[in-house]
Amino acid sequence: MIKLKNLEKVYTTEEVETTALNSINLEIKEGEFVAIMGPSGCGKSTLLNILGLLDNPSGGEYHFGEHEVARYSERQRAQLRKGSIGFVFQSFNLIDELTVFENVELPLLYMKVPSSERKQRVEEVLERMNIMHRRNHFPQQLSGGQQQRVAISRAIVAKPRVILADEPTGNLDSANGEEVMKLLSQLNEEGTTIVMVTHSPYDANYAHRIINLFDGKVVTENIKEHFHI
């Protein structure tokens, strides 16, 4: 589903050229749960941003499904992003001025889903995430765990092919973190591909495959035995 060939990302400032990703070759299959690990500054987030079509690589190939998207314009990336990719962030990134319902509804608005269908899908997801009773609350009125559940609801409401999660438990205590990881696992079991960046070996354990990055390169790949594609 995702295929990277010799992918590179170089940041250039006036004086310094920094290689964030160096010749990355990677394949992620439909239904996989992949964790990306590595020390700070190794390029984890850069990789996730490129996978999420938020950024373009400097070189190499990126195949998303049947599309080669490495040279896509911002407009093309935005078009492909909506509906195909869901995002979950460490700091939740909910819009403070919108209620839980309205936050979750947002991706469907950009997909121009009709109003009645929007309502039905949002309610389904909120029920499922066990947050329906908070539908009219604003993000500041929720606990961290609840906010992340809303963020996950928002990520899955459009039924994306892949969810990209950037340290989804980083801002949560262990109980809430556990709950979020269970939710992601459950989603994966139902067929959603998940790519997660994490510092936590415990969280990485939920994944089928762990990719370790160091200085912008893939150094090791650990595949868990019980996972069969």
């Binding site: 999420g52 078009q79 909506k82 819009i95 947002l106 950009y110």
Partner: peptide, 14 residues
């Protein structure tokens, strides 16, 4: 800013 970022991530055009 956060709203702008999220809207862009959700697929909003400039």
């Amino acid at each position: 800013l956060k709203e702008i970022g999220i809207r862009k991530v959700m697929g909003s055009m400039r």
